[in-house]
Simulated scan of single mutants.
Amino acid sequence: MKYVLLIGLASLFTACYQPTRNCKDYRTGTFHSEVVINGKVFTSDFTRNEKVQVETYDDHKDSSEVRWINDCEVVFRTIHPKNMSERKDVHLKILTTTDSSYTFEYSYIGETKKQKGVAYKVD
C-alpha cells in the first residue's frame, strides 16, 4: 500500500511538469548550434529570418527556405541542392527553451531516425 501511494505521488508530480517552450523567441536571429553524433560534436552558425536560413558548417554555406508548421516546428528546404541528400527536406522541432537557447530534434522528412542538438542565440 505504501508503494502504491509513493508511485501515485511521483506520477502526479511528473505528469504536471511541462518543459518551457517559448518557441516564438527563436523564429529569427543569429545562432550557434551543437549536435553530438556518435560521440563527435558538430557545430554550425546560422542566421534565420521568417523566410530563409543561411547556415555555415565547415566553411560551407547553405541556404534553406523556412516554413513554420506551428510555433515550435519548422521545415527547411535547401534552395540550391547540389546532391540528392540536399534535396531532402529537414523537419526540426523545438523541444525546450531557456532564455538564451533551445533544445531541438530534427530528421529528414520520411525518415524515423532523429538527432538532437542545442542552439544558442547569439544576438
Rank of each mutant, 00 (worst) to 15 (best):
residue 72 C to L: 01
residue 17 Y to G: 01
residue 34 E to W: 00
residue 64 S to K: 12
residue 32 H to I: 02
residue 64 S to Q: 08
residue 18 Q to R: 09
residue 16 C to T: 10
residue 74 V to Y: 03
residue 17 Y to C: 05
residue 13 F to Q: 12
residue 36 V to K: 08
residue 37 I to R: 07
residue 29 G to M: 03
residue 57 Y to P: 02
residue 53 Q to P: 04
residue 34 E to F: 06
residue 61 K to P: 03
residue 27 R to M: 08
residue 40 K to E: 13
residue 77 R to D: 12
residue 11 S to Q: 14
residue 42 F to W: 02
residue 74 V to F: 02
residue 66 V to K: 07
residue 58 D to N: 15
residue 28 T to E: 12
residue 79 I to M: 12
residue 57 Y to L: 06
residue 32 H to C: 02
residue 48 R to C: 02
residue 22 N to H: 11
residue 50 E to F: 00
residue 26 Y to D: 09
residue 60 H to Q: 12
residue 53 Q to M: 11
residue 55 E to A: 09
residue 25 D to H: 04
residue 63 S to G: 12
residue 22 N to T: 08
residue 55 E to G: 05
residue 12 L to E: 09
residue 37 I to K: 00
residue 79 I to C: 07
residue 15 A to D: 05
residue 79 I to E: 10
residue 64 S to T: 08
residue 25 D to I: 05
residue 73 E to Q: 14
residue 38 N to H: 13
residue 67 R to Y: 10
residue 62 D to K: 11
residue 74 V to S: 04
residue 11 S to I: 15
residue 81 P to K: 10
residue 61 K to S: 14
residue 12 L to V: 15
residue 52 V to E: 03
residue 33 S to W: 00
residue 66 V to Q: 07
residue 23 C to M: 06
residue 47 T to K: 01
residue 66 V to W: 02
residue 57 Y to Q: 09
residue 19 P to L: 00
residue 19 P to R: 02
residue 22 N to Y: 00
residue 15 A to K: 07
residue 56 T to K: 14
residue 26 Y to W: 05
residue 70 N to Q: 11
residue 29 G to I: 02
residue 72 C to Q: 02
residue 38 N to T: 08
residue 20 T to V: 12
residue 66 V to G: 07
residue 62 D to I: 12
residue 36 V to D: 12
residue 65 E to N: 15
residue 16 C to L: 12
residue 60 H to D: 13
residue 62 D to E: 12
residue 66 V to I: 13
residue 64 S to W: 04
residue 57 Y to F: 14
residue 64 S to D: 10
residue 12 L to M: 14
residue 77 R to P: 01
residue 19 P to F: 06
residue 66 V to Y: 05
residue 70 N to F: 14
residue 27 R to P: 07
residue 74 V to A: 10
residue 17 Y to P: 04
residue 77 R to K: 14
residue 43 T to C: 09
residue 52 V to K: 10
residue 56 T to I: 15
residue 71 D to I: 01
residue 30 T to K: 10
residue 78 T to E: 07
residue 63 S to D: 08
residue 70 N to V: 10
residue 26 Y to L: 03
residue 63 S to F: 07
residue 77 R to H: 15
residue 62 D to T: 15
residue 57 Y to C: 03
residue 47 T to N: 00
residue 63 S to A: 11
